[in-house]
Design a protein around this nucleic acid. Structure first.
Lengths: 143, 143
DNA sequence: CTGGTTGCAAAATTTTTGCACTGGT
DNA sequence: ACCAGTGCAAAAATTTTGCAACCAG
């Protein structure tokens, strides 16, 4: 909990209760959308307004605390900034799983970017399919 | 033009003028959002309604004619379905450039998916950065 | 001819904004 | 105490929906 305070302050943001709750929920759930954040946070902090979430998502993405994960056919989810990684996105249940990045892929990108004269800031690898869980039982879509 | 007719019909969609115009604009511009489509198409077919675009985007994505390209911090763009490829997304000017997929990367994914027991349908690789053009001159954001 | 498609207008949803008030530092 | 940050309510923007008229096959 105290580490979230540090995270926010080091990013130049006041550590308000609202922000701490938002960050904590994002961290706990890994990948979550605006609505999900609202649902979770209002359970323990009922007065939180959606406007505050929107304002904070915007500024926290700007400051690099959060990262937007845009997903085809759905609304974006958000995650805490962390080491580059890939996303396995289950189109059945909507679950998003992190997968560590592969070094060999990074190297390929590096040489490719040199060739293209493109200054790479961030990579985003999303793999859409059906997770092992949903291949076995018939899952209900979560969102 | 006639090939768009074929494309639509083979996908089980009637080849209306509206659809032909939408597909043609998407093809011509490569990657374009709802608003862009509306702007371009209404220039030559002023009566087109946005509702029609929305309805058609949804069904055309469903039928596999179009593919949604979700982009962090912006609205999704759409492209014609084509061979798997990566996207170079310039965060300055908003331009999206296609880059052919790398076979060696695909192979890495394949073995990875086996290990994870994940049934892969579609991959999406977006590389965000600054294109060579914007590195030279100061560009105006396009959208 | 006929079912799928369109356009319009209204509704629903999502996101943004302005401003008085509050709370972190 | 100061100013960033909050909550509310209103506005703007985006997306969806229902339905009568229309048109591609």
């Amino acid at each position: 909990m105290t580490s979230y305070v540090t995270l926010l302050k080091e990013s130049g943001l006041k550590a308000t209760f609202q922000r701490l709750h938002i960050v904590e929920v994002v961290d706990r759930y890994g990948h979550i959308g605006i609505e999900g954040i609202y649902d979770k946070v209002t359970k323990i902090h009922p007065s939180l307004s959606v406007a505050t979430i929107y304002k904070n998502i915007i500024i926290m993405v700007e400051k690099g605390v959060l990262v937007e994960v845009p997903i085809a056919g759905k609304k974006s989810k958000y995650e805490l900034s962390k080491l580059d990684h890939m996303h396995l996105i289950c189109t059945q249940c909507g679950e998003v799983e992190d997968l560590p990045c592969i070094e060999s892929i990074d190297k390929i990108f590096d040489s490719l970017m040199q060739k293209e004269h493109f200054k790479l800031f961030r990579q985003q690898i999303n793999l859409y399919g059906v997770c092992s869980h949903c291949q076995q039982l018939s899952c209900q879509p979560v969102d």
